[in-house]
Amino acid sequence: MYSTSKDNWKWQLLLAGILICIVVSMVVATKRVDYTWHWERVPGYFFYHSEELEKAPFDGQVTAITQQGELSTVTVKAEDGELFSIEVETAGVKVSTGEELFEGDILGSNPGWHIGPLVKGLWTTIWISFLSGILGMILGLVTGLCRVSKNPTLRGLSIIYIEIIRGTPLLVQIFIFYFFVGTVLNLDRLVAGVCALAIFSGAYVAEIIRAGIQSIPKGQSEAARSLGMNSFQTMVYIVLPQAFKRTLPPLAGQFISLIKDSSLVSVIAITDLSKAGREVITSSFATFEVWFVVAALYLAVTSVLSQFIFWVERRLSVSD
């Protein structure tokens, strides 16, 4: 047996060596395919600075331009008397007083910071995963309870649901949900995407919950029942809290999978992080960089989640 604590630094050194080797070989590999890295193009897709063009909302005449230092207020009057005022940067004013304008003519411009597609995509991925995670949790809890219920109808329904969802690819489910269910019920693509993910994760959560409930010793519910609690109270106060604690690690794994699986909703034209990445590549041509960045962003989100679960687990372990 190695005494790993004594020779710890040697192993750390080996680890660092292996990591360096991997990075070096990647650099060499990209050299061989003649790839030019353009990391400098990436930040612009997170946030960018640009001139926002302000346009006339209707046909009319510029009645006044009042200057207040850096900013000027342009007022446009329509033929029916309607007034429109907007603040633009003084240097960017493109019209003069009395000028006749048509709808859509540029009045001036305002410089500003804008959120880029990668951040928008990241946000879409986060909220879609979060929402479908919550819905999946609720669905999974209900299904898991049905799965362990004594009622054959409820048990049968939950088994059929779980088997169908676990036995078919998520990609196919998303297509069916969007093209069939979505068409029948006239669902928005976002709703369809979230529902498909929720139903998908619900089936897995249900199995996790079932295993958790069944792992609680029978004596626990017997003790609760012997005190006069009904089966609902026993479930809520005694079994589920203990089952929840035991199922946290597999549930965490399930939600991390969900975040990654959410990339599949891009097939129904939801601009999540991976679709944003693909779109960014078409304009930046920085294929390698963008995919690395996208991977890093997914990794960041899943790491935050696993740290949070780890924290909850530690808090719940006080009764051990």
Binding site: P217, G219, Q220, E222, A223, A224, S226, L227, Q242, K245
Partner: peptide
């Protein structure tokens, strides 16, 4: 009707 079990069955949480 109270009951006391062999394995105590206290609620660990």
């Amino acid at each position: 009707v109270g009951m006391v079990f062999q394995q105590f069955n206290l609620f660990p949480h």
